[in-house]
Amino acid sequence: MSTSPSAVQPDVKKHLTSSILLWVRTDQPRQTGMDYWKGPHSGIISATPGLAEYRQIHLAEHNPGRWPVTDGVETSIPADRKVDGVAEVTFQSALSPLQGRKQTQLAYKDEINVFRRTLLYAGPPNSSRWYDVAGPGETVGARALVYLRRRDGVGAGEFRRFIKKQLVPALAGTGVLKELRTQTFLPWIEKLWDTPDVAHDNPDDQHFHASLILGFTDTASRDAFFTSKVIEELSNQLRPLASAIHAYDVAAALTYVRNGDILPGYEE
């Protein structure tokens, strides 16, 4: 597979998306927290005005790190920082977050019922990109979520350009992806999501700067992808730029709001 920028340039739709990384409480069974998030808590978020899409990314409980060992890059996910799920919230416009302030306050109050730590990562308008990589009738049967940490000394602009012009074409060029979404983040600021009674500890050396959602036909395709020559080539390109690559298996991706409409029930 070619990893040159001319390999594949898929069509793209640009959005304004925030991702909230979530850790469920440990004083109750993990599944209890995941079920509460899927149920009562989802209703609060779904009712927020101005949403284009609201999706919950439920991560598998066992997630040591999918990305292969790469010299000088943290690919094993530390147990104490292993994320349980991600709320993926896409807005209709740059003004939409202001519309939802009242509903956001309800979400703030409800977090203590299910989460022990929450971290919001936001990007500027158009920094969330959804690429058209699936053929007609092709569906996603398995996903992976990848978080990237920029290496010290690497500029934010250089990092974003690499993702757009090198990484995305290389991934699309594999021909195996049925979903490809990327986000690049602004510097993390606790005050953007400083909910009461929930931890927001996020040391500087633990910050993330970008994420990828990769969709596959099935788990066998996902397994083959992460052991392929493609990943070795990408690791070699990423090594000078990224100090950490945390690749998670996704257990479920549940959509509650699509195209601005609240769905009668979540869709996988």
Rank of each mutant, 00 (worst) to 15 (best):
L59M: 09
R66P: 00
Q92Y: 02
R66A: 03
T90F: 04
E53P: 00
I77D: 02
E74Y: 05
V73F: 08
T90W: 06
D80P: 00
R55Y: 00
S76R: 14
R66Y: 02
G85C: 01
R55V: 07
H58F: 10
L59H: 10
L59G: 03
Y54S: 03
R66F: 12
A87C: 05
D84S: 06
P68D: 12
R55T: 14
H62M: 02
A60G: 11
V89M: 08
Y54P: 03
A79W: 01
R55E: 11
V89R: 04
I57M: 13
A79R: 13
H62K: 12
T90N: 05
A52M: 01
W67L: 09
V69L: 14
H62W: 04
E61M: 05
H58C: 01
V73W: 03
V86C: 04
W67E: 07
T75V: 12
L59F: 07
V69M: 12
Q56H: 11
T70L: 15
T70E: 12
G72F: 05
A60E: 06
A79P: 08
R55G: 00
G85F: 05
V89T: 09
Q56S: 03
D71F: 10
G65I: 08
E61Y: 00
T70N: 11
N63Y: 01
R55M: 13
H58T: 04
E74I: 14
D71C: 03
G65T: 13
D84R: 07
W67H: 09
V73Y: 13
D71E: 13
H62S: 14
R55Q: 15
L59C: 04
V86G: 09
Q56N: 00
F91V: 08
P64V: 09
Q92D: 04
E61Q: 10
R81I: 02
Y54E: 02
P64I: 07
V86P: 02
T90K: 03
S93W: 03
Q92R: 13
T70G: 05
E88R: 13
P78Q: 08
G65C: 11
V86Y: 01
H58M: 07
K82V: 02
E88H: 14
T75W: 07
D84A: 10
S76C: 06
G72P: 06
P64E: 06
E74K: 12
D71A: 10
A52Y: 12
A79I: 14
V73C: 04
F91R: 06
S93F: 07
A60H: 13
D71I: 02
H58I: 08
D80V: 10
G85V: 09
Q92F: 01
V89C: 01
V83I: 15
T70Y: 00
D84N: 12
V86A: 06
R66H: 01
F91N: 00
E61G: 01
D80A: 06
V89P: 01
Q92I: 06
G85M: 10
V73T: 13
R55I: 04
A52H: 15
V69F: 12
S93N: 10
G65A: 11
S93M: 05
D80W: 02
E53Y: 06
D84T: 07
A79Y: 04
P64C: 10
V69C: 02
K82G: 00
V69K: 15
Q56R: 13
E74Q: 15
R66T: 14
D71Q: 14
H62Q: 10
V69G: 08
V86M: 08
A87Y: 03
Y54W: 12
